[in-house]
């Protein structure tokens, strides 16, 4: 069922308050919204990361739904096991199938967990993999990941990262996933409906959510949603979906805001904005533009 208003989501909380996320944590907003939208019965699997640590300090858990964490690089493999085992248990009358939702950060998705994700998607397990992307290893103190964008300062890229962000969506599309999409928590309705859509599709689906992090992006905790919005409106984080290989841009930003508006709010880009680093800034802009143009072409190849 389509989500059209907030009351459609109210009362379906999967996460309890009292967890240890930082003030203004974008990841928890994203995860809350995913769980509010998700159709039961479901099981959540998390790799190691911020989300796992902030939500389950023994003897407490913020999870109001069944949840499991095993290690950093294997969430998709754990999910494969759960999905397949419940299939046979249902057959034998010893259990019933649940929808499986993996929720991992960019480190556990873009980097160390990619092999297991590749395996799970190739095998075609029926699961939804959600990546909340805060663009670095925040749990260990802000180290660069493959998701860190050009020019961003982390504790392991003190002079700004030189490489582009890995295009995770294309990787999953190449695996033949029936549904891969991006989302932002400021567009809660879009996000919620994408969760529902992904869950309704048999097979491995993927949702890539931008998750601003006040701690690691160095901005005031009240600005999380504003920054997510700017990421979208500057075309830094395009909102689109790929259904059975067909691209569709969900938020066509015809007149993008200047990228600097997004960058200036975050001290992680202070280095990038220095006059002497103009070339790096140009490379950042080129990255944004090239990706957007590529998306336009892909979307044009599949007219609605």
């Amino acid at each position: 069922m389509q989500v059209s208003k907030l009351l459609d989501l109210y009362g379906r909380e999967g996460l309890s308050p009292g967890h240890s996320a930082c003030q203004g944590c974008g990841a928890t907003i994203a995860v809350r919204q995913v769980l509010l939208a998700a159709e039961p019965p479901y099981i959540v699997v998390s790799p190691t990361g911020c989300l796992e640590v902030i939500s389950t300090p023994y003897p407490y858990t913020a999870w109001r739904v069944p949840w499991v964490h095993v290690a950093f690089e294997n969430a998709a493999a754990v999910a494969s096991g759960i999905e397949a085992a419940l299939r046979v248990l249902e057959r034998k009358g010893l259990g019933r199938r649940h929808k499986i939702i993996v929720i991992g950060g960019d480190g556990g998705t873009f980097d160390i967990g990619l092999q297991a994700i590749s395996g799970a998607f190739e095998r075609g397990h029926d699961l939804l993999y959600v990546c909340y992307d805060n663009e670095a290893y925040m749990n260990t103190g802000i180290q660069r990941s493959a998701a860190t964008p050009i020019g961003s300062v982390t504790t392991t890229t003190p002079a700004g990262k030189r490489e582009r962000k890995k295009d995770i969506v294309s990787i999953l599309v190449s695996h033949g996933s029936p549904y891969v999409a991006t989302a932002s928590p400021h567009l809660w309705k879009d996000l919620a409906n994408k969760v529902r859509k992904a869950q309704s599709i048999e097979g491995p689906t993927f949702l890539h959510i931008v998750a601003p992090c006040p701690r690691g992006w160095y901005y005031d905790s009240s600005l999380t949603i504003k920054i997510a919005k700017l990421a979208v409106e500057t075309r830094v984080f395009p909102i689109y979906e790929v259904e059975n290989g067909k691209y569709r841009i969900n938020y066509l930003i015809s007149r993008p805001r200047p990228v600097e508006e997004y960058l200036r709010l975050q001290s992680r880009f202070a280095y990038l904005l220095r006059p002497e680093n103009a070339a790096l800034l140009e490379e950042f802009k080129r990255w944004v533009e090239e990706r957007w143009n590529q998306l336009l072409k892909l979307a044009a190849a599949f007219p609605p």
Partner: peptide, 8 residues
């Protein structure tokens, strides 16, 4: 019976 496994 939602339980949390693999807590820290």
């Amino acid at each position: 019976e939602p339980s949390s496994f693999g807590v820290f």
